[in-house]
């Protein structure tokens, strides 16, 4: 790996973190419950990317397995949350 490789991963990870912060703003302020679920859904996809980036940043590709599992769980959790609120509304 040539010069500055890790800085690039760090820059992308920072961008992801900024996005997560913005999503968090929406999750807290979001007027409806659907806005909040949307924000949380966004946070989880970004978490998947963040884990993958951190794996590269730390030079530990095993992190990718965790990211993979996270990508799968994310989907199930959104559907589950929507079922919950769908019944209540």
């Amino acid at each position: 790996m040539a010069l500055g490789g890790t800085e690039m991963f760090a820059a992308a990870a920072l961008a992801i973190l900024a996005t997560m912060a913005l999503a968090l703003v929406r999750a807290i302020s979001g007027p409806t419950v659907y806005d909040r679920v949307l924000a949380v859904n966004m946070m989880t996809t970004k978490t998947t990317l963040l884990i993958a980036l951190l794996g590269f940043l730390a030079g530990r590709p095993e992190f990718l397995d965790i990211a993979l599992v996270y990508a799968l769980i994310n989907f199930v959790s959104v559907i589950a949350v929507l079922r919950l609120f769908g019944r209540r509304v």
Binding site: A11, A12, L14, A15, I16, A18, T19, M20, A21, L22, A23, R26, L38, A39, M42, K46, L49
Partner: peptide, 11 residues
């Protein structure tokens, strides 16, 4: 990263 932040701002 740019798209991520753009989307975050949009949200």
């Amino acid at each position: 990263g740019f798209f991520a932040i753009a989307g975050g701002i949009g949200v």
